[in-house]
Amino acid sequence: MDYHVHSTYSLDSHMSMEAACLQAIEAGLKEIAFTDHIDIDWPDKTIPPFDIRMLDSYFEDIEKMQNMFKGQLVIKKGIEIGLQPHILDECASIVNSYPFDFVIASVHLVGGVDPYWGVFYQGKTKEESYKEYYEEILKLIKSFNEFNVLGHLDYIKRYSPFPVEKTDHLLCTSLVDEILQTLISKGKGLEVNTSGYRHASEAPMPHPDIIARYRELGGRIITLGSDAHTPEHVAFKFETALQEIKRSGFDTLTSFTGMQPEFVAIT
């Protein structure tokens, strides 16, 4: 199952829904979730927003794919919703107004600044930048409930200008623990995002040690997603990621229908 797939409904994707489905079947997947972006109040006004009015056509197009590939691929209606402190009520309203199967909550902005931009790191050490990012995640997931899993927990490593070190996942461990404990206490899950294998760290997001820590603390809900924006990245490095997930103590992945979890054995 690939539970993080972007179609051309996401501005940064170059993959049609049909191309994603065909690639998923070619890769031997049984199920995918389209999880296109909603990032309300994005600071760069030169980029067209994902307008909520597009969600009607988004759902219609997913339903077309469900009919086109019936019997070949299970296709779920998902979203990746970007959280910021001042838009949480609006995010909740969107999730509650549409029949989503699956919702990823992600943090792409801290104080209106994306860690993608170098300005985020100015005047900070590596640890200080990670701390600020993790603190924002913790604050947001404590306040927001309308989601199933937290997306790419250590997203900051993807764009950090500091040299990659094998111990980066050990930065701010007490904060990471508090994030994991908050997810567990709220019945929320953790995404394993394989786009990290395309990064210099050559590790999923989050790092396997963080996945193992989530399990050690009692976490059970885990999804696997490629964060694909092009066909060649659908199911990217899934065999490697599944091995890491199993080594972390999991024998199931989680699928969602109507935002309700179902545990599926890892063969």
Rank of each mutant, 00 (worst) to 15 (best):
I87P: 00
Y130K: 05
F120K: 03
I52H: 04
G112A: 12
Y98L: 11
V107K: 00
G111L: 09
L73K: 06
D89S: 14
E63I: 10
D56K: 14
W117D: 12
M65A: 10
D89L: 15
G112P: 10
F120T: 04
G112M: 13
R53I: 11
L83F: 02
V119L: 06
E136Q: 13
I94A: 03
M65I: 07
K76Q: 10
P115F: 03
K131M: 09
K76D: 05
S129H: 07
E136P: 03
F100M: 02
K124R: 14
I104P: 02
Q66I: 06
E146V: 10
G111D: 11
L88N: 09
D89P: 06
F147H: 06
I87R: 15
Y58T: 02
N145Y: 15
E132W: 08
E136G: 05
F59C: 11
V119S: 11
I141S: 00
V95E: 02
P115T: 07
A105M: 05
D114G: 07
V119T: 11
S143D: 13
L140D: 00
K64N: 14
V149L: 09
A105L: 04
F59Y: 13
K124C: 07
F147K: 02
E80L: 05
L83I: 01
P99N: 12
E135R: 15
E80Y: 05
I62N: 00
P99S: 05
Q122G: 05
F69G: 09
G82M: 00
Q72A: 12
K142L: 11
D89H: 15
F120M: 08
G118N: 14
L140C: 04
S143P: 07
A92P: 02
Q72V: 08
A92Q: 12
I75K: 03
P115Q: 07
V110R: 05
Y133C: 03
K126S: 03
V119R: 10
K76L: 08
E80H: 07
E136W: 04
F59M: 12
G123N: 09
I87T: 15
L83K: 00
Y133E: 01
M54V: 08
G112T: 11
L88S: 10
